[in-house]
């Protein structure tokens, strides 16, 4: 089913070096990578970013086919922003279609945006592909824990994220089930104009919300039954520790980020 093929937030099991990194390293690395994409202001910078990301993906042994599948749901966003950039940017016209003109600047900016978007999506989806959701939120909790001084409830935030992530597949399964049940009753989710389609979603969304509330209530009950009372005094079963592998990762990351900044400086 198409609905199950969304890779965002899905873990791809593996034992590669990238999988074994400390979650904090991976989260910080992803942040640095995302920031670097916005520092880049010319294609040469993207080339470096692409090579870096390509190397990390290769090291993680996540098949490219799997990553490409994750791109499909946001294809619309990519196409939309490309068209917008292509037609709306003013500058030297190349050719015209009716009132719309395609400009050199537009082509430049559109391709720039597409590359940035794709790298952004690949980079961020890789994080969840190589990190178990629970490990990921543990990492976030640890990274945020210094903020406890300013009364930021880092544990509660992390728990909320864990639960949200945990329920993505559950809700997708639920959606799939309800969709099939309504299809069996003759519902049509695929044809008709936008208005009809939006209306056609009601038989899907109402039961989905009902399910979500039911699941949430059950979960709250189960947590209370096991005496959950927030993060205070809670210890971990598996502690986290930086290893030599993480040191190496930070080194590579520093070199990468340095070269991105260098390329930007060159451009002046």
């Amino acid at each position: 089913m198409a609905i199950k093929d969304i890779t965002l937030g899905q873990y791809f099991p593996g034992e590669s070096a990238v999988h074994r990194l400390d979650p904090r390293t991976k989260i910080l690395g992803t942040f640095v990578f995302i920031i670097s994409l916005f520092i880049v202001n010319r294609f040469a910078g993207f080339a470096i970013a692409a090579v870096f990301l390509g190397a990390v993906i290769a090291a993680s042994r996540v098949p490219l086919k799997f990553m490409l599948k994750g791109l499909r749901p946001i294809l619309f966003l990519i196409v939309f922003s490309t068209l917008l950039n292509l037609f709306v940017t003013t500058g030297t016209p190349i050719f015209q279609i009716g009132p719309l003109s395609v400009t050199e600047e537009g082509v430049y900016r559109a391709s720039f945006m597409v590359i940035r978007l794709i790298l952004l999506i690949f980079g961020s989806s890789l994080l969840t592909l190589v990190t178990k959701p629970i490990t990921l939120t543990d990492g976030i909790e640890r990274l945020l824990s210094p903020m406890n001084i300013v009364k930021l409830p880092s544990h509660e935030l992390a728990m909320m994220m864990t639960i949200a992530l945990r329920f993505i597949p559950t809700l997708l399964d639920e959606t799939d089930k309800i969709m099939k049940a309504q299809t069996a009753r003759g519902a049509d989710f695929e044809s008709g104009n936008l208005f009809r389609r939006a209306k056609g979603l009601i038989p899907l969304l109402v039961p989905l919300f009902v399910s979500a509330f039911r699941i949430a209530a059950d979960l709250a009950m189960a947590m209370e039954a096991r005496c959950y009372r927030g993060g205070k005094g809670r210890t971990r079963m598996n502690g986290m520790a930086f290893t030599g592998l993480d040191a190496l990762a930070f080194l590579i990351l520093a070199v990468y980020f340095g070269s991105i900044v260098y390329v930007r400086m060159l451009a002046g």
Partner: peptide, 25 residues
Amino acid sequence: LVFQYPEYQLFEETVLRDVCFGPKN
């Protein structure tokens, strides 16, 4: 086809409208 736990597919405001969903389609 009646799925497992079919009550989770109910969505309409009234029983009659929900049962009408299939024939209407």
